[in-house]
Design a binder for these strands. Structure first.
Lengths: 233, 233
DNA sequence: AAAATTAATATGTACCTACATAAAAATGTC
DNA sequence: GACATTTTTATGTAGGTACATATTAATTTT
């Protein structure tokens, strides 16, 4: 690319996206064949193909062999978000991070937790409650269950020093994750630890991970009032 | 691919991902060069490259020219979610969809709304409140502002028949979107329309869209109690 | 020894070719 | 005309080549 005459696949993607936005290609329309777009823009078909793959992933177009490429009629808002280690999240906001273990017990998995994992039988799990603080104020209260079959090492970890969140992220990669968001009213315990008035609305992130078919951990993270999750469009 | 001997880039991606998961390549490690992986697996370097692009996007590895490819040490949970048209969302749950316009007024944009758009000056906006129902029960209450400069046509639309949500999605593509989630306590109006007890925790989605630099719409969607947003990992 | 220059190297990107595959369109058969 | 078969066509995918580009490593210069 010594001259700026060569189009990269991102250029093609942006051009096609612009045409969709300005209605050159309207919703439901069939786009020209990759080859025709390629020759029009002066690039190779593979370049157009790579651009189209990206637009497909973004939910803007649908492609079918022989059927061609169509602009989606029911566009969805598709956004991605990152949930980093809580410590990192706090530090990135420029706050001081602290962590406090509340409880740590070996328990048989209750039905509600089995349901989250899709388990049929009871399992021995480590039940951990902990509080993350930002600038010495409550930030997130986490209620976590860890399957001791997939993760026996957790029993040896000193959870007063390092949070299960951090240890797991560093030592236990997962192959599948389920994330859900909801809102709950602060009850006695939540209100207490988060120093929030009883009844106040709290943002909840529930995350469950597996390695292959085996459950690793499920955690309910309740954020202090005012928490906002921001996603990138 | 007449024989199953040929590896597609997704195969390579899955293989490399598996190696990261089982610690063949541990966090922080440098991976072999694309070319070496290619010759080891018996495919072309371009195939490995395509796989690596995907793993980079997924947040599993980081690449640098000459520096090589490294397994990320601080993996993040990266998930994607779709926010479809509300009608579609309701119908996909197998429920009957209904919609009800509450109010529709031309107003000068208040400061809070200007802030969402990043606007410095006041603009004429259409302020619309509406209720979406599932099986005749309140589902989502939306409070929306539409910029009449980018979207003057909205003034001609009969919003008693079609929701602004739907009209905009079909007729007003956007180039940028900002999505945030939070939780609020039901106040008088929310509680009323959503038939929820005052004070109950409600899940809130705030979405703002632009076309180029121009604001299109910003909407606060308050969901009835029990609403959950599910993301794909 | 510090600074500047040069070489080496791994990834980034585009091109073209060749063939696979799914699905629509055309054709043939009863 | 209904159904089955064949052909056509647009996308899917891998291979291999050529060169760009960023960064590190090595070398030379001061």
């Amino acid at each position: 690319m010594n001259e700026d005459t060569r189009l990269s696949w991102t250029d093609v993607r942006d051009e096609v996206r612009a045409r969709i936005l300005n209605r050159t290609y309207a919703p439901g329309d069939r786009l020209p064949r990759d080859e025709d777009i390629a020759s029009e823009l002066g690039c190779a078909r593979t370049t157009v193909h790579r651009a189209m793959q990206d637009l497909t992933l973004a939910g803007l177009v649908e492609r079918k062999r022989k059927g061609g490429t169509h602009v989606r009629t029911d566009p969805v808002t598709r956004a991605t978000f990152d949930i980093p280690i809580t410590r990192r999240e706090v530090e990135q906001r420029g706050s001081k991070y602290n962590y406090q273990l509340i409880s740590r017990n070996l328990e048989a998995s209750p039905i509600s937790i089995m349901a989250r994992f899709g388990l049929q039988t009871v399992a021995n799990m480590l039940h951990v409650k902990a509080l993350h603080l930002a600038d010495n104020r409550p930030y997130i209260l986490e209620d976590r269950w860890i399957d001791t079959r997939s993760t026996p090492e957790i029993l040896e970890v000193d959870l007063t020093r390092e949070s299960a969140n951090e240890w797991l992220v560093r030592n236990k990669p997962y192959s599948r994750v389920d994330v859900r968001f909801s809102a709950i009213n602060a009850d006695g315990e939540n209100a207490d630890y988060l120093e929030a008035p009883t009844g106040s609305a709290l943002f909840v992130i529930e995350r469950t991970t597996w390695i292959g078919p085996s459950p690793i951990t499920t955690v309910q993270s309740v954020a202090a009032p005012g928490y906002q999750l921001v996603a990138q469009g």
